[in-house]
Design a protein around this nucleic acid. Structure first.
Lengths: 253, 253
DNA sequence: GCCGCGCCTTGATTCAGGTCAAGCGGAATG
DNA sequence: CATTCCGCTTGACCTGAATCAAGGCGCGGC
């Protein structure tokens, strides 16, 4: 169970390089929060956390349901989706390893959380975590930092939704996924963690438009497709140019 | 210099009712952060803060520029805008009284901040504020809470940008503004803090479409317009229905 | 190996919102 | 009081993405 290379840009964040040494188990412990914890604090965390795995497609938290835990993704990928009464849906976040979910001060989930692939979470009960945070200020400081990163990322996504064309939207998403989950090397390649339907929900498009734009990008030589999920790209900067971003997107090296 | 009624829903947040007693001066001191501060802490804050006012239209922070302060809005309204290299722009946030700007751990602004109306900020130098936060955990806790509220609000806005029609978008914005800045009473009425152009930038539309939808809503009897900025509404729930939200939107009473 | 189901692609058509263009009107200026 | 300018409205037209409608195809089950 290895984690992503921390030097890769973050799909749902502003691309901050996470601090912390080699990580072997739980991102909450080893990277996301406790990079500077004392050993005794780590031991305490150890006793509080638990793991749970969901299969692709399973609902993890229903919209409006009681949210009894906070936690972060250990492996796999989950989607955060909000929906309107008439059924229109918008994905508002994509949770990849080390991403955090749940807030310490509110019990009700504002979004539906669904496993996109098989996904494992490292979880804490809400009240316990809150208490721990109060007693450990640098954990709270790290939480604040992470929240602000998520806020920046959410705001960046508003440009995608509000101003980009369908082609740019699809190129943006593919480039982000390639940067984040690809096996290193050139050409980059990856297995998409999302169905076409999920991509459409994320991008504010329909499934047909996503499919057409993927085909168009393939015909234009910007990407190669391998079955339903496989994708590769030999020139990421060309793809980013189609995305309408600067050469390097929003992320420093 | 009175603040908005805290019972009014927050335009750019998830509608949490802020705690704290009557507020007469700076929201950082009296409401947003220090509702639970000791007197001695308040005195210390008092010595650190300063005020600054910008005229409508002035740029407060340029995109990518050095951000030397953190602060919150005392009165007036400012916009947070991100732009693409080809000039397309998307507003990613609207700062109203008590809203916060600037992060404690990063010096560079990701967005341009512009005064929409004459606007006054209460400011702290970044390094000082960070130090103060470290020494005062409940201030940090409040900052975390505020950041998570902003994150929820940003994610809510993604539905507006990604899935709503032009009519729904305009109705959503008008209803939010009316809820937040209207003088109490029925019919609600307010002076819009935004030009049509700024509304378009916020909603991911063009100025012409905003104008047409405003006219349509007026002709349909959902709102009344009074000059360029004046607006009133005798049935907010009807307007919210046009916005595609549930009757009460995202905010509890 | 064959079948069947879901996911995906592709085509034809429609329509919401963008684009281009003209003109109004209120507020500041002289 | 006339002028000008800028923010706004309105109209005509166009286009990009949605919608509606067929299939194709990879994958799991038998």
């Amino acid at each position: 169970m290895t984690h992503i290379d921390p030097s890769l840009a973050d799909l749902t964040r502003a691309g901050r390089t996470l601090a912390g040494p080699g990580c072997s188990q739980c991102p909450i412990r080893h990277r996301a929060i406790c990079a500077t914890c004392e050993d005794s604090e780590l031991d305490r965390l150890e006793g509080m956390k638990s793991y749970h795995t969901w299969r692709a497609g399973e609902t993890i938290v229903m919209e409006g349901a009681d949210l009894a835990f906070v936690g972060s993704v250990v492996s796999g990928c989950a989607t955060l989706t909000r929906s309107m009464e008439d059924g229109r849906m918008q994905m508002v976040g994509l949770l990849m390893p080390s991403d955090f979910i749940g807030r310490n001060d509110r019990a009700v989930a504002a979004y539906e959380v669904v496993a996109a692939t098989d996904v494992t979470f490292c979880m804490f009960r809400r009240a316990e975590f809150r208490q721990m945070m109060r007693e450990t200020p640098h954990v709270m400081e790290r939480m604040l930092e992470m929240s602000l990163d998520e806020l920046d990322a959410a705001r960046d996504w508003m440009i995608v939704l509000g101003r980009k064309t369908a082609r740019e939207k699809v190129a943006t998403l593919l480039a982000n996924i390639l940067r984040r989950v690809s096996t290193q090397g050139s050409p980059l390649h990856a297995q998409l963690p999302l169905t076409r339907d999920a991509m459409a929900t994320y991008l504010g498009l329909t499934i047909e438009t996503v499919s057409r734009q993927m085909t168009a990008l393939r015909k234009d030589g910007l990407i190669d497709l391998d079955g339903r999920r496989g994708i590769s790209c030999r020139d990421l900067s060309a793809l980013l140019a189609e995305a309408g971003d600067d050469e390097d997107g929003q992320s420093p090296a």
